[in-house]
Design a binder for these strands. Structure first.
Length: 240
DNA sequence: GTTCTAGAAC
DNA sequence: GTTCTAGAAC
C-alpha cells in the first residue's frame, strides 16, 4: 500500500494496530515510522498524531500548520516533534555504533514542498547513497545547501523573528520557490564538486562515506587505546 | 510518493 | 548499443 495520504491514515490509527514493519515507536503526541523508501541508511519520519486542538486539515503540511492562525500552538507542536527527534537521534547513534563502529551525521527537517499529505519530520543519516536514492529530485530534496530541506532549528527560529519575516517564510510557496530547487545541477553536499549524473554522484558519496568511516573508526580506536592506558596507569598508581 | 518508458546523452 | 533522465500515469 502506498499513496499520497498514507501518512494521514497512520496518524489517525491506533499505534497498537500499526505493523512493526511500519511503526518504530510512538508517544502520546507522535508516531515515528520507518521511511518506506529510505534515502539514508537510517531514515525515519515523525508524524504528529491527530488530536485536539488540531484538526486533521491543519496538520496537512508545515504550511497549513504555520498558517493555521495560532502561532504559539504551532510552535509548541513543532517543539514537541523536535524533542522526539532528539531522542530518536540518540537511538540512531547507538545503532550506528553497534552496527558500524562509529557515528555520522543525522539531519532533522521538513521538505519545503512535501509530496505526501500530513506533516512529517524527516530524521535521516547523511550518507545519502542507498538503493532508494534514485534521482535528482530525491537527492536535491535533502541537499543541505539548496534550501528545499528546512532544518527544524531554522523553522523554529522563524517563530522568534519579526512577524513579517515569519509570514513570508510561512507562505512556503511550492510552485514558485521550492519546486525549482529540485532541478538544480547535482553537486556533492560535502565537497561541492559538481556531478554529471546520479550514478556518478552515488559512487562519489559512497567514497566520501567510506573515507569518513575509516577516519572515524581510527579516531575511535585512538580514543579506546588512550582510555586503556589511562586505566592501566590508574591501576599502577593505586598499587604503589 | 513510485513505476514505466520514450528518447536524449553518451 | 547502452545508460540515464524526466515526464506521464498511478
Amino acid at each position: 500500500m502506498s499513496n499520497l495520504t498514507i501518512l494521514r491514515t497512520y496518524a489517525q490509527t491506533n499505534p497498537a494496530k500499526l505493523p512493526p514493519s511500519v511503526l518504530f515507536s510512538h508517544s502520546s503526541t507522535s508516531l515515528t515510522i520507518y521511511d518506506a523508501f529510505a534515502k539514508g541508511i537510517f531514515h525515519f519520519l515523525i508524524l504528529p498524531r491527530v488530536q485536539a486542538p488540531f484538526a486533521v486539515s491543519e496538520l496537512s503540511s508545515l504550511r497549513t500548520l504555520l498558517l493555521s492562525g495560532d502561532k504559539a500552538r504551532a510552535k509548541q507542536l513543532i517543539t514537541a516533534l523536535n524533542e522526539d527527534a532528539k531522542t530518536l537521534r540518540k537511538e540512531i547513534e547507538e545503532e550506528m555504533l553497534d552496527r558500524y563502529g562509529f557515528t555520522w551525521g543525522i539531519w532533522t527537517g521538513f521538505h519545503g514542498a512535501p509530496s505526501m499529505e500530513h506533516l512529517h519530520l524527516h530524521v535521516l543519516s547523511d550518507d545519502l547513497c542507498t538503493e532508494r536514492m534514485k534521482n535528482k529530485k530525491h537527492y536535491n530534496s535533502f541537499h543541505p545547501k539548496l534550501g528545499f530541506f528546512l532544518d527544524i532549528d531554522e523553522v523554529l527560529s522563524w517563530f522568534d523573528a519579526e512577524d513579517s519575516y515569519f509570514s513570508s517564510m510561512a507562505k512556503l510557496d511550492p510552485k514558485k520557490h521550492y519546486e525549482p530547487m529540485l532541478k538544480e545541477d547535482l553537486s556533492c553536499w560535502r565537497c561541492n564538486t559538481s556531478m554529471k549524473n546520479i550514478p556518478t554522484l552515488k559512487a562519489h558519496l559512497q567514497e566520501e562515506f567510506d573515507s569518513l568511516a575509516k577516519r572515524e573508526k581510527a579516531k575511535m580506536e585512538r580514543r579506546r587505546k588512550l582510555e586503556e592506558k589511562t586505566a592501566a596507569r590508574r591501576e599502577t598508581d593505586a598499587t604503589e
